[in-house]
Design a binder for these strands. Structure first.
Lengths: 201, 201
DNA sequence: ATGCGTACTGACCGATCGGTCAGTGGCTGC
DNA sequence: GCAGCCACTGACCGATCGGTCAGTACGCAT
C-alpha cells in the first residue's frame, strides 16, 4: 500500500483526474488508475460504479473547478484597458493553475462524434463564454459599431486556450516575443484587441 | 465484401483516417477499421505493419494534406485588408474542407504527455504558423511598433481553430453574429485585428 | 461477545485487444 | 501446366479489458 495522508477514494479520484486529463477516457484503464493510486482494481469499482461513471464524476468536478473561477471573476478596478489586461492575465493563470481541469474540459471539444447531446463540458464552456461576454458588455465602453462583444469574447478565449495547448511548442519557436509571461501576454493581446495592428492614420 | 471501386488498401486507410480523426488512437480498434472497411482484420495487418504504423501513416498523410494547402497559399491580390480577409477565409474553408486531417493534427496538440519529442503534427503546425507569419510580415504594411507578426499569426490561427472546434456549439448560441459564414467571419476578424475595438479618438 | 456496515482484496469472468499464421484462390510469367 | 507472388481469410494466440464476487479485516454500536 502506498503511504499517503489522503483516503483511498481521494487518491483514486485524483489519479483518475490526472490520467484522464493526460490520456483521455480510452487511453486509461482501470488497472492504470488502481496501480497509480496504490489500491486494488476491485477497490476502484468499490468507490465508482463504472469507468464511465468515474470519468463523468471527474469531468463534472473539472467543470465545477473551471467554472468556479469564472464566477469569482467580477468587476475589476481600473480603466477598460486595465480590466481587460487583468481578465486575460487571470484567464492565462487560471489555465496554468488548473491544467488538468482545463485539459479535461477542452479535450471534450476535440472529441466530436456527431452527437447532438450537449455534454457537461459543452455547457461549461458555453456558460463561461457567456460570463466573460457579459463582463465585456457590462463595461459599457465605447467600441466601434462593428464590434460584437460575443465575437471579441471568442477571440479572447480562443487565443488564451491556443496558447495553453501549444505551450510545449513555444520553447522551440524562433520569435522570442511569443514566449511571454502571462502579464506580458495579456498586455500584448489587450493592446491588439483594443487598438488593432494598424498605425493610426 | 463491401462493393467499392477503391482497392482494399485505399478503403482501409480512408476508414482509418475517418475513425482515428473521430475517436483518437485509443478509441479505435483494428476490428472497427476492418469492419468499416469491409475486410478481415488480418487483411488490415497485411497492409499495415501495426496499429501504430497505420496511425502514423494516416497522421503523416493528414499533415501533408494540411500543409499542402498552406504551401499553395501565396501572395494574394488587393490591399492589406483584402489579403488578410482572404487569408482568414481561406483558412476557415481549409479547415472545413479537410475536417478529418484538421482533427487528426489538432488532436495531437491536446494529447500532451510530457514527451520531449516533437511529433509530425507539432512540426506541421509549427511550419504552418511560420508560413502564415512570413506571409503577414512580407506584406510590409505599416503596423504599430508594438505589434509582432508572430503574435498576430497566433491570434489569427487560434481564432480560426477555436471556431472550427466549437462549431457544434454555435448552433445553440444566443448571439446571431457568431454564427457567421466564412466570409463574414473573416471580415469581422480582419476588422478587429486591423482596427481594434475602440472608437478612434 | 456479537452483529453489522464499510473498506478492501485476490481470484475469476467473458469479451475484446493487437497481432500471428497456415492456408486459399486468383493472376502472371514461363 | 505450373511455379511464384499477392491479396486475403478464419482460426487462433496471450494479454488486457471492464466488471463481479466471495471473503477478510476492522471499527463501532448494542
Amino acid at each position: 500500500m502506498v503511504c499517503s495522508t489522503e483516503t483511498a477514494q481521494e487518491r483514486i479520484v485524483a489519479v483518475a483526474q490526472r490520467l484522464f486529463a493526460q490520456h483521455g477516457f480510452d487511453g486509461v484503464s482501470i488497472n492504470d488508475i488502481a496501480a497509480a493510486a496504490g489500491v486494488s482494481k476491485a477497490n476502484v469499482f468499490h468507490h465508482a460504479a463504472s469507468k464511465a461513471e468515474l470519468y463523468d464524476r471527474v469531468l463534472q468536478e473539472a467543470c465545477a473547478v473551471f467554472t468556479e473561477g469564472y464566477e469569482r471573476l467580477a468587476a475589476l478596478p481600473g480603466d477598460f484597458r486595465q480590466r481587460l489586461v487583468a481578465l486575460i492575465e487571470w484567464h492565462a493563470r487560471h489555465l496554468r493553475e488548473q491544467p488538468q481541469a482545463a485539459r479535461l474540459v477542452l479535450r471534450e471539444l476535440t472529441a466530436w462524434s456527431e452527437k447532438p447531446v450537449q455534454g457537461p463540458a459543452d455547457r461549461c464552456i458555453g456558460a463561461n463564454l457567456l460570463r466573460v461576454q457579459r463582463l465585456l458588455e457590462a463595461d459599457g465602453i465605447a467600441t466601434r459599431p462593428t464590434i460584437d462583444a460575443a465575437f471579441v469574447t471568442r477571440v479572447l478565449l480562443a487565443v488564451s486556450w491556443f496558447r495553453f495547448q501549444t505551450q510545449h511548442l513555444e520553447a522551440r519557436v524562433q520569435s522570442r516575443r511569443v514566449r511571454l509571461r502571462d502579464r506580458e501576454f495579456a498586455e500584448q493581446l489587450a493592446d491588439l484587441l483594443l487598438h488593432g495592428m494598424l498605425r493610426a492614420d
